[in-house]
């Protein structure tokens, strides 16, 4: 990695920690939300960016993580940290299950994307109807601010934990991309037949990506539950998180470790700015997101990370 990129990353990290420690509550709220989306997007990036399987239904993982955490605590009195661990495992499990059902049937490309959307919608409707999720009224977690409960009196502390999760997944993604598993993901993304001919079990590789992706996005759901302490089916399984996680990756830079983080921060900053400027036009930020998606795919297919790298190599063409 180039020095300039390292300096840029260190500066961003410093600014984020600064906001978490000293920023006003509104700024911290903004940052926590953006980082939770970044974490969900990191999950999407592993499956969509590295393994080439585009999903429209990452809400299925986000919501499962969120609900498992919330239900275990509110209905069964399970400790919040253990609840989150179970939420992440449940995300991996639902990822493997959805993957097994769709990939075994040979679904690829847009068919896979549509079936994931369908799974997320089925879960949303089921969660809206089932008594255990609180149905339409949703689930409210008891406010009890103790570290043992994964609730903190200081928003900044929680923000730092979310940031730590995002950085941990950043490190994990960078590492996986350099291993045999990462090469298998890339091979399956680029050409399934060639991958098979080289001894790669394509189904198992895709299921690995689904499990990992599901776990990471479910972790984002767990963190959401712990921060907002309220959940209903439209938050947990709503299409907003599916859309934002893929949008963050595409805008930030697909199949780059830092892409989802850059994308989520940029999108949320822009969303907030639009809401401030445009005032009370409902959904104006979504209109803007749509335009950005079109612009990104047309003019910057490698996203902001790609633009940054291109600018770097223009400045030092021999490096």
């Amino acid at each position: 990695m180039k020095i300039s990129s390292v300096i840029a990353m260190a500066a961003v990290l410093l600014a984020l920690v600064g906001v978490a420690l000293f920023g006003p509550n509104t700024a911290i709220n903004f940052l926590v939300t953006a980082l939770i989306v970044a974490l969900a997007a990191q999950g999407w990036n592993l499956l969509g960016g590295y393994c080439g399987q585009f999903s429209f239904g990452h809400a299925a993982f986000f919501g499962t993580g969120a609900y498992v955490t919330a239900i275990l605590q509110s209905r069964y009195g399970v400790n919040a940290w253990i609840g989150c661990g179970c939420g992440i495992l449940a995300g991996a499990a639902i990822g493997t299950l959805i993957g097994w059902l769709s990939f075994r049937a040979g679904l690829r490309g847009s068919y896979f994307a549509l079936i994931t959307l369908a799974f997320a919608e089925v879960l949303r409707i089921a969660a809206n109807a089932a008594p255990i999720t609180g149905g339409g009224t949703g689930l409210l977690l008891k406010l009890d601010m103790r570290a043992a409960n994964f609730q903190f009196a200081s928003r900044g502390t929680f923000c730092l934990i979310v940031l730590a999760c995002v950085l941990a997944v950043l490190a994990l993604t960078t590492w996986i991309a350099r291993t045999k598993r990462g090469a298998e993901f890339a091979a399956v993304r680029e050409n399934e037949d060639a991958a098979r001919a080289l001894g790669i079990d394509v189904l198992v590789t895709k299921l690995r990506a689904m499990a990992l992706s599901g776990a990471i996005t479910a972790a984002a759901g767990c963190l959401y539950t712990q921060y907002f302490l309220y959940l209903d089916s439209n938050i947990a399984y709503g299409s907003w998180i599916s859309v934002e996680s893929l949008l963050a990756v595409i805008v930030g830079g697909i199949a780059t470790p830092a892409g989802p983080i850059i994308g989520a921060l940029a999108l949320h900053a822009l969303g907030e700015a639009t809401r401030l400027l445009a005032g009370r036009i409902t959904g104006i930020d979504l209109v803007l997101f749509g335009l950005i998606l079109v612009a990104a795919t047309a003019f910057a297919p490698k996203g902001l990370a790609g633009l940054w790298n291109a600018a770097q190599s223009r400045r030092s063409p021999r490096a």
Binding site: A186, A187, R189, E190, N191, A194, A195, A197, I200
Partner: peptide, 14 residues
């Protein structure tokens, strides 16, 4: 059937 997005050495490394 090359892995078009990968470099030559990455292709062979798979």
């Amino acid at each position: 059937q090359p892995f078009a997005g990968l470099s030559v050495v990455e292709n062979i490394a798979v």
